[in-house]
Design a protein around this nucleic acid. Structure first.
Length: 328
DNA sequence: TTCCAGGTAGTCG
DNA sequence: CGACTACCTGGA
């Protein structure tokens, strides 16, 4: 079944830059496949697989967003639109946010560099959790490639005219994946072909020492940690719960809550955000990551997540990042 | 070749 | 607690 429709920019507040949003390295998921100025990804809509293809008409960010949804099941346009509005944060009022940025002279320069950048939220919270764990101490290029690899190896595949797409595997599937070559080999016991290639294990996806974290996190989500309940908890309770997962420290926990669960008050602090905040607000002193986190949450309130996103992207594009490099 | 990338877990004082 | 360090991997 195929559904096509468009969303007028009049139906959300403020600009949207799809390309910027999708490719800004947010740990919700890897970038969507880009083909011919349209973006594609397989998502779940009403628990059914659905290939989304979307882009601005004539690649003009001010024009309608054109959307095509294809699914083996019957899916309503309304459900598709609801999913897209969530993933691309179309219900967030960026005009309101830009007024907030303008009030702080430290933040106002970010607007020009980030015009239309929105939170790129998870279409699968579990994928976001594993992505965030994989991103720790790792380049964006590498963790995104790992996630794509994981989907191809253990996700459910669907074939469309525009290519093959895969879901992210469930916690149950991930909890049973071999950690490394040795474990993969052991599972085959004694009937191994001579030309056997070890590639259906987690470390072969390039996640390195995080393989152990990922499998154990999947097991905990499978058994004791209920993501549905997590979504209903207040922030600190949810933070205390999710940080119990192996490989999840404060930065990753805040990323999961921001991108995976849409908690805008999250302020994930990595080394760059720490340096940027120090540079802008505390030029004479050095803060601890925890102090930067508290500063961000108190100072930026419900916009903390966006400020983090904008500061990071701004610093990266403006050259501020380079000037802050190697101080350690 | 050596270094570093959007941190975390483990150890030690 | 706070400070310190090892850690997979691959691109520059």
């Amino acid at each position: 079944m195929i559904t096509e429709f468009s969303i007028s920019p009049k139906r959300f507040k403020g600009p949207l830059n799809l390309n910027l949003t999708i490719n800004s390295g947010q740990t919700s998921q890897p970038p969507w496949k880009n083909s011919d100025s349209y973006f594609q990804e397989l998502i779940q809509v009403d628990s059914s697989p659905c290939l989304i293809q979307m882009g601005h008409k004539d690649s003009d960010p001010r024009s309608n967003i054109e959307i095509r949804a294809e699914s083996p099941e019957n899916i309503s346009k309304k459900s598709v639109e609801r999913s897209i509005r969530i993933i691309f944060s179309l219900d967030h009022d960026l005009n309101h946010f830009y007024r907030f940025l303008t009030e702080d002279s430290k933040l106002s320069p970010t607007i020009d560099f980030c015009h239309g950048l929105r939170l790129f939220k998870a279409h699968d919270p579990f994928e976001c959790i594993i992505s965030s764990i994989s991103s720790a101490n790792c380049s964006i290029l590498r963790w995104t490639r790992s996630i794509v690899d994981i989907k191809r190896k253990w996700g459910d595949g669907y074939r469309f005219n525009s290519g093959d797409f895969y879901t992210f595997p469930t916690p149950l599937v991930m909890s049973e994946v071999p950690e490394h070559d040795l474990e993969e080999m052991q599972r085959h016991e004694d009937h191994l072909p001579d030309d056997f290639i070890f590639d259906r294990n987690l470390q072969a996806c390039g996640v390195g020492y995080r393989a152990k974290y990922i499998i154990n996190a999947a097991r905990m989500i499978q058994s004791e940690i209920d993501l549905v309940k997590l979504a209903r908890m207040n922030y600190e309770k949810a933070f205390d719960t999710i940080i119990e997962l192996p490989g999840v420290g404060p930065k990753v926990a805040d990323c999961i809550l921001l991108y995976g669960f849409g908690r805008g008050q999250a302020f994930p602090v990595d080394v760059w955000i720490k340096r940027i905040i120090e540079k802008l607000y505390f030029p004479k002193e050095e803060l601890k990551p925890q102090e930067v986190r508290e500063f961000g949450m108190e100072h930026y309130g419900k916009w903390a997540g966006y400020v983090q996103l904008y500061l990071f992207h701004y610093a990266r594009e403006s050259g501020l990042l380079e000037s802050l490099r190697k101080k350690k």
